[in-house]
């Protein structure tokens, strides 16, 4: 991909050939990111809608099933993600100030949190698998013991796995993107000399965080 700087300033970020100047490029990137986030909202939105319908329809059952989920682990994960959101905001701040070391540190912390989140999630998933709560052939719901309809239990855990799974996939993609961004920053790659790439990653990461902020109370904290 041919990139060429329009100005002589060696510190100036690269402008791609389709853009007039750096301002236009930055504005376009940020607008593009927001449009992408709109599609993401609709993507998760459909799932949240489905969840809401069944939660409303099978309210009592969902209360019973939600007790299977570990709200402590979920709560820790919420804290972890909130901390990572803060650090990614810091990273954008340092990117604007062109403080490379602090920016890398902040992104590194975000990455750490993201890994932490996935590890805790993996522990949670592992427990569900152990208890045969994954909705495949091995799924078991002891209705006699806990109450609730086994098929609705299946529905609940299907929604749980598909929604947190899709969210986990987004965290995973976030890890790859943040890692790549850190690599580019460390290498002083020309596309990274301004703050916009970090800002774009930050926007994405805030969105991922926000999805969890909705997922956590909807699945883990169902009131009777």
């Amino acid at each position: 991909m041919a990139t060429h700087a329009h100005t002589a300033d060696p510190d100036a970020p690269a402008v791609y050939e389709q853009f007039e100047d750096i301002d236009q490029q930055q504005e376009t990137y940020i607008l593009g990111m927001w449009s992408f986030l709109v599609t993401e909202i609709m993507f998760f939105g459909a799932l949240f809608l489905i969840y809401s319908i069944y939660r409303w329809q099978y309210q009592g059952d969902f209360y019973i099933f939600h007790k299977e989920l570990d709200y402590v682990l979920g709560g820790i994960n919420t804290t972890v993600l909130l901390a990572s959101s803060f650090s990614v905001a810091l990273a954008v701040h340092y990117a604007q100030l062109k403080k490379k070391r602090q920016q890398l540190l902040a992104l590194g912390f975000t990455l750490l949190c993201a890994f932490g989140f996935l590890i805790i999630k993996a522990i949670e998933y592992g427990k569900k698998f152990e208890h045969s709560k994954f909705p495949n052939d091995t799924f078991v719901w002891d209705a006699a013991k806990y109450g609730g309809d086994p098929e609705h239990a299946r529905l609940f855990f299907s929604l749980y796995f598909s929604m947190t799974g899709l969210h986990g996939l987004h965290v995973l993609i976030g890890i790859l993107v943040i890692g790549y961004l850190m690599y580019l920053i460390a290498k002083d790659h020309p596309v990274i000399t301004d703050y916009v790439p970090t800002e774009l990653v930050g926007l994405y990461w805030h969105f991922v965080d926000l999805v969890w902020i909705f997922l956590y109370p909807l699945f883990y904290l169902i009131p009777k």
Partner: peptide, 23 residues
């Protein structure tokens, strides 16, 4: 606005066929 909704819907049908998730 629309495409993500149908994408996830069709994907849920795939999950339904694979895991019988019942949505």
């Amino acid at each position: 606005l629309g495409t993500p909704v149908v994408a996830i819907t069709l994907f849920l049908v795939v999950l339904e066929r694979t895991f019988r998730i019942g949505i």
